[in-house]
Simulated scan of single mutants.
Amino acid sequence: MTAVERELPTDEAHDLLDLVRQLADERLRPLVDDHEQKAVFPREVFAELGAAGLLGLPYPEQHGGGGQPYTVYLQVLEELAAAWGTIGLGVSVHTLACYPVAEFGTDAQRERWLPGMLGGDQLGAYCLSETGSGSDAAALRTRAVRDGDEYVVTGSKAWITHGGVADFYELMVRTGDDGPRGISCLLADAGAPGLSVAAPERKMGFRSSQTAQVLLDGVRLDADRLIGAEGTGFNIALSALDSGRLGIAACAVGIAQAALDAAVEYARERRQFGQRIIDHQGLQFMLADMATQVAAARELMLAAARRRDAGQKFGTQAAMAKLFATDACMKVTTDAVQVLGGAGYVEDFPVERWFREAKVLQIVEGTNQVQRLVVGRSLARGPQAAPR
Rank of each mutant, 00 (worst) to 15 (best):
L187R: 15
L186R: 03
G274I: 08
D121V: 09
V72Q: 01
S135K: 05
G247W: 11
F324Y: 15
A52V: 05
Y73C: 12
G231W: 04
V101K: 02
S184W: 03
Y59Q: 13
F355S: 00
F168I: 04
S208I: 05
A82S: 11
R181Y: 14
R271S: 08
E78A: 13
S243P: 02
L186A: 07
A144K: 03
E269C: 08
V214K: 01
L140D: 01
A325H: 08
R381E: 06
D279Y: 06
L260H: 05
E150L: 14
D136W: 10
G274A: 05
S135P: 02
E150W: 13
P115H: 05
G315P: 07
G344L: 04
R245F: 04
H280R: 09
R308A: 15
M290S: 06
L171H: 11
D15R: 15
L96S: 09
V219H: 03
A137K: 14
I87M: 10
G366W: 03
V72W: 01
R29F: 09
R6P: 03
G205T: 11
L118I: 07
I87G: 06
A259W: 00
S239C: 01
H35N: 08
L323K: 11
F273W: 12
A288G: 05
V4N: 00
A380F: 10
